[in-house]
């Protein structure tokens, strides 16, 4: 179980968060209202909507 040493975390907490939002569009307005930069992805199910194929393509880096 998690004997591996954690790698040093890439900066997140000390930096200003800049968000890429993938999914619920409602989050975009709320984040922008708080002054957070957001890029919204007009997402739709990949691989013709086949979750297994989508998972495989993601693993292959497609």
């Amino acid at each position: 179980m998690c004997a591996e040493e954690n790698r040093e975390l890439k900066p997140l907490l000390a930096n200003r968060v800049k968000v890429i939002n993938v999914g619920l569009e409602g989050f975009v307005g709320e984040l922008r209202a708080c002054g957070i930069e957001v890029t919204h992805v007009d997402w739709r199910p990949p691989a013709g909507g086949d979750p297994k194929m989508a998972a495989l393509l993601a693993k292959l880096g497609v």
Binding site: I20, G23, L24, F27, T39, D42, W43, P45, P46
Partner: peptide, 30 residues
């Protein structure tokens, strides 16, 4: 509006966090 995370990263190179709320079947892939 970008249609993929790859396109979004090209448009906002200094983005540092993805907030993912797509249906569960596709969430791991994203």
């Amino acid at each position: 509006t970008p249609r993929s995370i790859a396109a979004a990263v090209s448009a906002a190179a200094d983005a540092n966090l993805a907030l993912i709320s797509v249906p569960g079947e596709f969430a791991a892939a994203e």
